[in-house]
Design a protein around this nucleic acid. Structure first.
Lengths: 241, 241
DNA sequence: CGCACATGCGTACGATGTGCGCTATGGTAA
DNA sequence: TTACCATAGCGCACATCGTACGCATGTGCG
């Protein structure tokens, strides 16, 4: 290729890239970022890789997004936007209503495991519109259940903390599995011997591992989640009786 | 022996560094890593910076630690080692015993806020000795309270998930404050106007913010934690009645 | 018709994690 | 004593990262 200064060797060799793409937009960038994060995990997101997925240079993204951290904030709020607004039940149906919230929150985190790591870095100080809307609405659900606004806030924080805590643990494992390129089954089987060895000196842990060998992991994760969820709801109920 | 290469300009210019330091050790490295993380946050830990704090080159660390991830695992388990083993109470005193566990877990996380981010990445798949010991012991506390081993496991997971969830949110804010180089007061005051503006259209959130203006943040964080803790314990208690 | 602005991009800089091979040290065997 | 060898530390190098900067180009407005 003649890369020196030339008076254009041929018209046809001219850039000719012009305007076919509708150009970059913030929404597009964020959507593609979420897709990339879902597919390849949090470490796979670099500005260069994201740019090239959008047929763009890495630094082009900076016209639409201040920096990588901001991009993550936008991606997190995008995911929050997936959550359905819970139905605003009456005092009788509050438990079902809140169960639904908890389950869909968990499901969303498991669908986008990287979000757990980000929430761990930045907590709930995000202030994104989707998150605000969700929070406002959820406060309403707790009020409808019979809590004062003050206590609704605390009750909501309790519930959300629990769900986030459990889901974070599950999401971390999902992320590691995704990074390892193995199936969940393979991954568990590869780790198991080391775990059993490590646990040898601890009778209760050993018993737990023995009991769970060969069990369906995601099933028991789910049972575990439901157990804790019911306990948290029981605890909140004591304040309504 | 240097007879052919250089004539050595002066004996005194010779290295003379020999062996004064007891050399690097894994324990030393991990301890210094924890110190650096506590002082300057998770982004401040690079192998080069850690090395220079130990009067060592970056790559020297790799003689004692496989890679940065492993270093983090060791650091996390080191911190787990700070937790006191909870007193093994009888069925009557289980609540106090578990409260103590929950509080010291939270306190530890707040003392080392970076750990929340790491737990968010890697969950509880750590298998470090301190963590295993802690878990085994805690299972015992739940058993002593009257849970079967199966249910003790679930109950423990519920409690830990809650504490981790709340503390993660608090720790994230602490980390951001530390990174910003401001005091908590300054940081809150700088963020507040934006938050109030963002919250304008949501009556319940607006009311919450209005009520909390000027309040002591860490005090209300603590109240919040205690509220949720009591709810979780209430919920667990329903299974023991 | 010309000008200002917005957008994309090439280049570049400093920092990062870490592999590789050299060197010196200190312990052990002969 | 001497010869040797495992080990710890380190300098160098490489690929990759986030992102600042300034140029080029196409668009919309006067």
């Amino acid at each position: 290729m003649p890369s020196d200064e030339q008076p254009i060797p041929s018209v046809w060799a001219r850039p000719r890239r012009e305007r076919e793409q509708p150009a970059l937009s913030r929404e597009q960038i964020v959507a593609e970022a979420v897709r990339l994060l879902d597919e390849e995990g949090i470490d796979a997101l670099s500005m260069r890789r994201l740019g090239s997925r959008l047929n763009a240079g890495a630094t082009s993204l900076y016209r639409h997004v201040a920096n990588k951290d901001e991009l993550f904030e936008l991606a997190v709020d995008e995911v929050y936007g997936e959550l359905p607004l819970p139905e605003q039940a009456d005092a009788a149906g509050w438990r079902a209503s809140i169960e639904q919230v908890a389950r869909s929150l968990r499901a969303t985190i498991l669908r986008h495991p990287w979000i757990a790591a980000k929430l761990g870095e930045v907590g709930l100080a995000y202030l994104g519109p989707n998150m605000l809307r969700q929070t406002e609405h959820l406060l309403g659900v707790f009020e409808a259940a019979g809590f004062s606004l003050d206590e609704a806030d605390q009750a909501m924080n309790t519930l959300v903390a629990y769900v986030l805590g459990v889901s974070t643990g599950e999401a971390a494992v999902l992320s590691m599995i995704a990074r390892s390129g193995q199936t969940e089954q393979e991954w568990v089987e590869r780790l198991w011997p080391a775990a059993e060895r490590a646990v040898q000196d601890y009778p209760r842990l050993r018993a737990r591992y023995a009991a769970q060998r060969g069990q369906d992991v995601s099933k028991s994760d789910q049972d575990n989640f439901e157990y804790g969820l019911q306990r948290v709801l029981d605890g909140l109920q004591t304040r309504l009786g």
